[in-house]
Amino acid sequence: MLLLVLLKLALLAALLFGLLLLWLELRHRLRPASPLRLAASPFAVEPLSGGGLQVSGEITISNPHRRMEVFVPELELRPTLLGRGDLAGVSLRTGVTALHPDEEERPDGYWAAYIVKGRKATRARLTVEIRGEPGVDLQALLDTLWLEVLWVNYGPFGRLRARDGILIPLRRPEPQQPATASWREGERCRVLPVRTHLLGTLDDPEQVLRHYAGGVLEPGDVLTIGETPLAVMQGRYHHPKTVRPSALARLLCRVFHPTSSLATACGMQSLIDLVGPARVLCAWLAGTALKLVGSKGWFYRLAGEQARLIDDVTGTTPPYDQTIVLGPDRPEAFCEAMAQALGVGVAVVDVNDLGRVKVLAASRGCDEELLQRALRPNPAGNANERTPLVLVRPA
């Protein structure tokens, strides 16, 4: 009789837990969300008459939903300059010109509320004028423009504020050449950190690899790229202001080490948005239970690879230090495609100053033991070296 009662209680508990997971998933999937997506085309950087620079480009706001119509009542720009010195003598002026397919351009630059209908899109031209006071050498001083688009989505889901950051390089380093390459001697290998400009969504990964490292590649080489630079080129980052932490995220984040990227409500919610609340909760319960018996690390195994790869605020190079950066998308497919395009091995890695080397993905035939030896000293660095690519050549 007692066994039967215990069995009934266990079944009841399992049913209640299943209903809890179902409720969490339904609440998560039905949360307010807008279908609108913003994408940027390449920006041009041109000199202005009388001195200064003009940065201009276009964005496209698309609505993939079949029936939903979404308003965009507000859109404004927030530019931030990154430079090599004091920028007090530099001024900025922004402009937005709506390029709606069914309305004429407004010469006054006012953004009138616009409806993006289902399966439709609209465009806008963005401009930023950069001028310096007399005596200011903009070419030597400026480095990068971080242009944030602050816009509102208004529809059946309510009123949501969106925030997209576009990184526009204002100067670029020269690509590596055999005659000037500064190789470092490693353990039965040679290592070459490859400097690039600060990377962003306007960059094509293949073009970046080919442009900066193509001149020094030889058969047998392995070209590695950091997981964070690849992720930002794929657009896998967002501002914490666009994250709405759930009660589950606020609860679970408190049990993680303060240095973990999952120790904040927005960091934890970013993981929940990727894999779902049910998986995160089950991973946490199972991980906690196994940790009590001496087996650690199970939360990250059960929650998925992204649980280890999320970088919360301050975890990356400015200006991405203000954002939450996710892990790269489909790194295995990326490595195979780049290896075929470049004719050398390609790997996506995560390396830190503590000698930890994790190879997230590598093309077929890559020697992982070679990468461990070569990257253990962290030749790319963890500061602002801007060497996201490291070329490894066997001795």
Rank of each mutant, 00 (worst) to 15 (best):
P47C: 11
L48W: 10
S49H: 14
S49G: 14
S49I: 09
S49V: 14
S49F: 11
G50V: 09
G50N: 10
G50E: 12
G50L: 11
G50R: 03
G50Q: 11
G51A: 07
G51I: 08
G51K: 00
G52W: 04
G52H: 04
L53A: 10
L53W: 13
L53T: 05
L53K: 07
Q54P: 00
Q54M: 15
V55T: 10
V55E: 00
V55A: 01
S56T: 15
G57C: 06
G57Y: 01
E58Y: 09
I59D: 02
I59V: 15
I59G: 01
I59L: 12
I59F: 03
T60P: 02
T60F: 02
I61M: 12
I61R: 08
I61G: 00
S62E: 13
S62V: 08
N63P: 05
N63W: 02
P64R: 11
P64D: 11
P64G: 13
P64C: 05
P64T: 08
H65E: 15
H65I: 04
H65F: 08
H65C: 09
H65Q: 14
R66N: 14
R67M: 12
R67N: 15
R67T: 15
M68P: 02
M68S: 14
E69S: 14
E69C: 13
V70P: 08
V70Y: 05
V70W: 00
F71G: 06
F71P: 03
F71K: 12
V72D: 03
V72F: 01
P73S: 09
P73F: 05
P73I: 06
E74R: 04
E74H: 06
E74Q: 13
E74P: 04
E74A: 12
L75G: 00
L75N: 01
L75E: 07
L75I: 08
L75W: 01
L75H: 08
E76Q: 14
L77G: 04
L77R: 13
L77D: 07
L77S: 12
R78Q: 14
P79S: 01
P79H: 02
P79K: 01
T80K: 10
L81T: 04
L82M: 09
L82N: 00
L82G: 00
G83A: 12
G83P: 08
R84I: 05
R84Q: 14
R84M: 05
R84S: 08
G85I: 09
G85K: 11
G85T: 14
G85A: 10
G85N: 11
D86K: 07
L87P: 03
L87T: 09
L87S: 02
L87E: 06
L87C: 02
A88Y: 06
A88W: 10
G89L: 04
G89N: 13
V90Q: 04
V90R: 07
V90H: 04
V90M: 06
S91K: 04
S91L: 05
L92I: 00
